[in-house]
């Protein structure tokens, strides 16, 4: 066969971003906030100040009292996230590939999705006690429903041309699952993972808020009862920092696993 040369599109290069703009904006807000607090224009009972929040954070780590609480919240959130992805993903896969399972599961999942699942927290405490299990259960519930729909929709919206392609190449169900459904679903799930991280922490912290003897939610409850805005904001910034770290980790995973996408 004759070899012909044809113009090849260049590999896409990442666009340059003004990466300094966001940190600068954050710094301006923090400095402004600090100045307002120093001038006595903010009531420390409600808003505290960045320096006081920083001091509260340093104290939490210096005394070491934060570690058991961090361990409890992270344990609950990560277990909830892991189990939620596993259970939600498996059910989504089953519902999409076995029509009668889909017919049974879809209305239940739609109902679970429609209600604010946080309201189940007190019930879960009654069922599983005030320990880790009730927090894991709440995180799991929040994450599983989200991932179920990501997988279920992902499989149902697979490009039918790709399915036919595999069939005409001689591939059966196993090849279809490995080569078409799973890669297609991965992009849907990865796009939902960042939301799932937020849900997992919401489940863990709200569960601790309702009833617990440790965890960041428990500490937040304690800070609220003592009108300690510095501690409240220190704990909130701690949760935000860890969630952002997980976001970055999932972002890196997404870039690696979805390198085939044209817009990346």
């Amino acid at each position: 066969m004759v070899v012909r040369k044809e113009a090849t599109p260049p590999n896409p290069t990442p666009s340059r971003k003004r990466s300094w703009l966001r940190p600068l904006a954050l710094l301006v807000v923090l400095l402004g906030w600090e100045a307002l607090a120093a001038l006595g224009l903010l009531n420390p009972l409600y808003a505290s100040s960045p320096s006081q929040i920083g001091r509260a954070l340093v104290e939490l780590f210096a005394t070491g009292q934060i570690w058991p609480h961090l361990e409890a919240t992270f344990g609950a959130a990560l277990w909830g996230l892991g189990l939620g992805v596993l259970i939600g993903g498996s059910l989504g896969l089953l519902a999409a590939l076995v029509p009668w399972v889909g017919e049974i599961l879809e209305p239940f999942m739609l109902l679970l999705n429609a209600i604010p699942r946080i309201i189940l927290a007190p019930l879960l405490v009654i069922w599983f006690g005030i320990g880790l299990a009730s927090k894991v259960a709440l995180s799991l519930l929040l994450v599983a429903v989200l991932i179920f729909f990501a997988v279920y929709t992902g499989i149902r919206e697979v490009d039918p041309r790709l399915v036919e392609r595999i069939r005409t190449l001689g591939g059966g169900r196993r090849v279809l699952l490995r080569e078409v459904y799973l890669p297609s679903v991965t992009s849907w799930v990865l796009s939902q993972l960042k939301v799932a991280v937020g849900f997992a922490f919401t489940g863990a912290v709200v569960g601790e808020f309702v009833a617990s003897s440790r965890g960041l939610g428990y500490l937040l409850n304690f800070a609220q009862q003592n009108f300690n805005a510095s501690l409240s904001l220190a704990l909130i910034s701690l949760i935000v920092a860890f969630v952002l770290l997980l976001f970055a980790a999932f972002g890196a995973l997404e870039r690696r696993l979805l390198a085939w996408r044209s817009n990346r």
Binding site: R161, E164, I166, L169
Partner: peptide, 24 residues
């Protein structure tokens, strides 16, 4: 079967796409 659309798997490289049928 050569389709109207190229119908290549977007998550596989050109080499992997060609090799796919052989592997099957």
């Amino acid at each position: 079967f050569l389709f109207q659309d190229d119908a290549l798997l977007p998550w596989r490289t050109a080499r992997q796409n060609v090799a796919l049928g052989l592997k099957i």
